[in-house]
Each structure stands twice: as structure tokens, then as C-alpha cells.
Design a protein around this nucleic acid. Sequence first.
RNA 1: CGGGGUGUGGCGCAGCCCGGUAGCGCGCCUGGUUUGGGACCAGGAGGCCGCGGGUUCAAAUCCCGCCGCCCCGACCA
Length: 441
Amino acid sequence: MFKATGHHNAYFPLFIPMSFLAKEAEHVEGFAKEVAVVTHTRLKATGKSGSGAVAPDPASALEEPLIIRPTSETIIYAMFAKWIQSYRDLPLLLNQWANVVRWEMRTRLFLRTTEFLWQEGHTAHATDADAEREARMILGLYRKFAEEWMAMPVLTGVKTDSEKFAGALRTYAFEALMQDNKALQAGTSHHLGQNFSKAFEVKYQTAAGGLDFVWNTSWGVSTRLIGGLIMTHSDDNGLIAPPQLAPVQVAIVPIWKSDEEKTQVSGVGSQVKDELARAGIRVELDLRESMKPGAKYFDWEAKGVPLRLEIGPRDIAAGQATAARRTGGKAPMKLDGIAAAARIALSEIQEALLATARERRERHSIRGATKAQFLEFMTGGGGFAYGGFCGRATCEAEIKEATAATIRVLPDAEFRSPEPPATCMWCGAKSVAEAVWAQAY
RNA sequence: CGGGGUGUGGCGCAGCCCGGUAGCGCGCCUGGUUUGGGACCAGGAGGCCGCGGGUUCAAAUCCCGCCGCCCCGACCA
């Protein structure tokens, strides 16, 4: 799905000369407070004991410190400047899988870790419109992945200036609502305009013979999505993995008392396993001894396996397995043609997860609320609140101060309310756009 | 960086006030009996009680210092 878009994988250095970051004014400001800096190239024994036994060797201080990439725009566009000569070199479409470091004051497992893994796409285009199309196309792709693979419904839209990426012209984002009614920014796609190309002198010769700066985009999703997946679907019994992404889609639990039964159910279980595997289903047969079937059920449930097939002597006698869905419910499944039946069940579970998550989100969304209703909503559990926005940063700041809610996105047309709001939900002035507020991670 | 809490077998915790043999549950190992929704019995392994110093005949326990982690605030994908 991602590879079909014509981007090529590439890799750029983890260490970036500090001066690179300084070239784009907004970008520096945005990241200055969270960048890890490498100042020395080696340690030296101090003669002390314990953790103080080594210290940076003063003699090895770098003339220019290196920073550890918080994102790679600067180093990649420094290279783009060398690689791009002509409009024939455009568009240049790269993607890199990398770790990045952002030294946050407070971390949160999966959602905000000091180091995280992500993919970051970086593209250069000849025109504003081409870059816009790219940023939009990627946003659509992310949405498709979130909904079709993760079964995580999302809102797409554009960020306000206060929430946009440092150095971007515009930031598009997709946002999901977690089960605690807090929003999660699941990924972003930036139209960078010519901000970086001007800073790094990424110029190209046009067909007409002139020189122009390229138009860039960058976009990424990270290991944060794993947190989103967990927080979207899990319940009190543990993880629920959507079938499309589940490492194990089907767990087969054989049930036996005597040795003869064990031989029989293991044999049938093994056949079922092979049949499912041949059909491309990721399946495991749980032959662990000394663990009772009930314990195995709980074990696989906690791991989020979407479908469990129980096979005991009574099932075999009836020519069936007992299929238990992680989303609830047990029903017999005929052994004859079981791969096809399992496939259908998995796809139904996938759909059910998306539908459940979407219903939950809508149940915790309000539209066209008055200021008083908005305040009550945000203090009483929260969720997505749609309303008119005057466009003023002061209103945004006041709302954040009062409720901790921020504008997650100015939603795309398909998510907007049928009646466009006329006035700002907060100050009552003329509305310039509909906004979606929520308390966020 | 401020305020609060907490560090004790792999995990979760009790013990600390009032100093005196390091304990419980889960997990792990061995044997046996079990096995259609978290099995039971018996035996066993595993701990510089966060680190450093002090008080004391004696410190998990009291005192001082440091470090880690968690929660709350400012910052953020």
C-alpha cells in the first residue's frame, strides 16, 4: 500500500551538525527545547569509583556540536540541494525508517518516549500544487491504513498555526479518539512550502530556463500508533488485535482428558492448523501440557488473538470446532471448509472493531454546542467537540486555559457538520472555520 | 525544574512507627494426580532489602547524602 506510491527508501545520518538546525528560524524554535546535543567524542577514566568513574574527555570537545535528529528535514534538504538540478529531477520522493530523539520532560509509554521509531517521508516538487497534492495524498493513505488495517477511525484535517509543525506552511493531521475520550494525534503530513528549500538553497532549473526553489513535503507516523491501537481496542481482559495486523490471528486450543483423546485432538488440531496456514492465516496450535484449556483461553485473550478455535472430542464427533471471537461470542465452526469460515470470521471481527470504535467516537462527540455546553462536555468526560472558530489564537489559548482542550483539526469537508457554524463557539464572533476540540495526549 | 509518593527473590506486595533468624501471593523447577473457562498436592531453587556514609553489640527498620521510578504542574508526535 505504501510502496505503491513510488517513494524510495533511503537513510540519512542520526547525527546532524548543530548549525543545520539553525537555518530555518521557526524550525529551530520549535525543536530547540527538546534536542539532544553531542558535545564530546570520548570518555576518560577519572580515577573515581562508581558512576563517576568516567567523564567526557575535555580534550575531545567538538568544535561544532552534533545534534541527534529530532526529525530529518535539515540533513535531508542539505542533500537535496546537491541532488536536485533540474525540473527533470522532480519530484524526488524519499522515505526513511529511523529512530529520532525528542527530549521531552515527561514520557508516556508508546505515546511519548524520548526515542521513538518512525517513518519520515520527504519529497521535493516543482510546484506548490504538486506538494499540496502529495501532502494530501499521504494523509489519505494514513487514514486508509488507520481505518482498514488498525480498525481505528480517524478525523482528518488541517492544524491551526499554534499546532502546526515548526517550519511548515500547513500541517495536516489525523486524529483518533481513545477509550478515555482523549484525542491522539496519530500522524501528520506537512506541506513545507519553500521554507526549507530557501533555507538550504534547494533550487532547480525550470523548463523555461529560470531558477526556482522546490516545494517540499514531509510526513510521518511512529510507534505511537501502537499505543493508539492498544488504547482503541483493548478491554479489561487485555489486548484486542485487529485481524489485519494481529501477529497471531487464530489460536487453536485442543482439549483432551485421556492420552487417546490427546492424540486425536492434537492430530485434528494439527490438520486445521496446516489448512489455515495454507490459506495464508497466521495460526498457532497450543499444545502446552499442564495448562488447562481455560488457562489457555485467558492467555490468548490477553495477547489479543482475534479468533480462537477450541477442538475437543465432542467437537470432533460433531465435525466442528468451537470458534470464540475476541470481540465476544462462541459458535460452532464446521471443520469442512474451516479455512474459508475462519477467514470470514476474521474479516467480520475486523469490521466489528472499526464499527465499535466509530460508534464510541460518535457517542462522545458533540456538534454545535454553546459555550456552556462545551464547558460541561469538557469537564464531564470529554471527547470531540465540533464548533465554530473565529480563527484567533487568543480564543484557542483561553479555551486551553479553561478546559485543557485544544483544536485537534479544522476538519476536512467529509467530517464537517451539515450546517456550517456561523459564530465562534467561544467568543461569538464570526466563525471562519469549523473546529474540533478535544483534550489530547 | 517545583510539589507528593515509592524503591524488599522474575512480577505484585507485607515487614519499617517500636532495631534482634527476611516473609506472603503469583510465577519458575521436580514428581504425582489433573485437563470443555485462570487445577491440586508434595518437595525445591531464587534476595549485597536502590546506592554510599553514619549511629548501635546488632540496621530492611533509626539519621545524613545521592540515585532510580511513579503521580501532579509547565513542554510535546
